[in-house]
Nucleic acid binder design. Structure first.
Lengths: 208, 208, 208, 208
DNA sequence: GAATAAACGAGACGGTACGTCGCGTCTTTAC
DNA sequence: GTAAAGACGCGACGTACCGTCTCGTTTATTC
């Protein structure tokens, strides 16, 4: 959704001001995140916001995309357990900060705003995709059975953070992250994410 | 927030009509679920809705409570794996149907409506509580290590369904449910949910 | 377009406040007659205006209707000349005051607002209709030829006031009104408004 | 407001395109006649319109001026009646066609746009001025009393066309034009437009 | 024939008003 | 005397034009 046009022009200024204002209002809890308020906080006319984004969710989507483009180090410690732990701690710090609010806001808007749904899905598709290599390496090292569905494993690892954040509402501390990582590692090692047709083989090999 | 009064009075009739209308609009996708629309569909004045509930979320909360009060059979097959699988299949059928929509709607409202958050949390606290016995039995049978945190395990089991439903948006089929159950069982068996203070002991025992 | 409902209720209060505010803003030249400003001046929410009237023109239409319902004495002096003169002076005082502004505003909106056009037409249809009796009496007295089209005569009499008001913009003084009346009387007496088929007869009689 | 510069340059081309587009949109009823739409229809940027004209009304003013500069034959049949009839038929054809729409649009804008008011007044001042000679000749021929105010008579003649066009909205057919001419001729002949101070003389002469 | 100045296309911008929707409150009538 | 009917204040929505403003790109004169 970003327009871009000339980088140094007025366009860029307005765009930056709006995103910054949105970010501020997002952090300020109980700040009624509306288009009008964002525009006002950005010192920009409401019309200018609608010229660029179709929606409030469009703005938030761009914010989220900015985060998506920021560098996230994928851990590579040589062991599945510590890789997943590092990953879980990264997810935790992401979920408790600003992007967590963004995801919450967008996920809340998703049921009635297809674009919001698309943005948030795209964000996670990318994030999860990056993390899959961790599982792939474990398979290569023999820590995880061949045929392990990396995507499923990562989704399984990330899920509890969302449940807490969006539904349960309890705090997400480091211990929680470590426990989730441990569970994920155990499940991966036990072959719970091996693709169905291979399961029989794995089960068979496990019988010995 | 429900009033109740006398069961056969106007109160009861209005209440039933509103809940039925809300349920209908909830099932009809793209039906914009607003108080005014519900009142109209119920053949009732908007004021009558606000007399009984503080919010749209209040109505949905009552709807969810009705589901919460409906009987859910907790599986007891004698083995952890099949118990969790049954449980996961139950969760799946719950998430794909009407209560799934309810939870989605309430979870969406949660960030700006504390009561909605409370309702949805209460719902899950109860559901998860009921399911914990499954883990307890596994511990008793020796299938799971002593000190296993049943609540954490169940939360871990349920989480992927929410992620799919609220965020990722992919369909939740039986295979998905079975895989989640398998992962959960593996993690439980591996002791990933043993409480921290016992972890040292476990670690200690693992040292030998 | 007026709603009416209960006379002493809130409805009536809002309605009166809006009409009064509109009247005030109408008189204040350069006062940007908009719905929002009227609502603000009336101490009423914009929504309440739109609840009752579809348009700004709807409000003005009601104002005009109020004037239409106010009593206007139709002169009956016994002579066509003085009757028309009285009438012209009445039209003049109407055109130079508030209803003149109303008509101006509505006539301006008419080309793009059918309802405004309808209102202003209805207003004049009624006004002109009332004034026709003056011509009718003149015919009965023998001052005007039989078959005189009273409607056409009155339209002819009223027209110069509109031209001045809407187009030319010059002031409309008493002398102007008297001259218009004199011209109208002369035209009526000369049989200029006798229906076409009768014209030949009149012309014939005039030939002698 | 027209710039002109060199006749074959871009300026002239843009100017012509804009005026042509405006004329087209003016004829197409229900075409919303806005600056943006005109610019688009002209294949010209909005800025280019504003570079040349201050307003939409400025454009329409130029359009009207073009019509004003077009030749209008002032009838000279030798008799007042037929002169006025010819004139009325000319006015009719002008009012029912494109210039009628122009006048309507400009008259509608006049109350809030002084320049529009000025343009439309100027147009009529010129048109009426040209037509005055008809009355002057009638006076010279003895068909009308000396001292007849030609301007007033012509205004009186033209007025009913405006009333129909701007306010009443009924069609303007040839019969209407003829009747107006007849009424005008009768009023002129009867001395209704003789200047006030002369009225006494006329009245006196009429007394005999 | 190159330099230069004016006009142009493109389109973002601040601004005002529009008309709509939904919320939750409050009054009025009627049962 | 309670409750249904529905108007109300409120706030935000998203749209349409307005008239202004850069910012490159032609175009057409001028040297």
């Amino acid at each position: 959704m970003p327009v871009g046009s000339r980088p140094g022009g007025r366009s860029a200024r307005v765009r930056a001001a709006v995103l910054a204002a949105a970010r501020t209002l997002l952090v300020d809890r109980d700040a009624e995140l509306t288009v009008e308020r964002i525009a006002q906080a950005a010192g920009v006319n409401k019309t200018s916001v609608y010229r660029r984004w179709t929606d409030l969710e469009g703005v938030l989507g761009d914010l989220l995309t900015e985060y998506a483009n920021s560098y996230v180090p994928i851990p590579d410690t040589g062991r599945l357990d510590s890789d997943l732990e590092q990953l879980a701690l990264l997810v935790r710090s992401g979920m408790t900060g600003e992007p967590g609010d963004l995801v919450t806001a967008l996920a809340a808007a998703a049921p009635r705003n297809p674009r919001a749904a698309q943005v948030v899905r795209g964000f996670f598709a990318e994030r999860f995709g990056l993390a899959e290599v961790v599982v792939g390496r474990a398979v290569a090292r023999g820590e995880a059975p061949a045929g392990t569905d990396a995507r499923a494993a990562i989704e399984f690892l990330g899920a509890p953070f969302f449940l807490r954040r969006l539904v349960v509402g309890e705090p997400i501390d480091e211990q929680f992250a470590r426990r989730v990582a441990a569970a994920g590692a155990a499940a991966v090692r036990a072959g719970a994410f091996v693709a169905p047709r291979d399961v029989s083989i794995v089960d068979g090999s496990r019988a010995f």
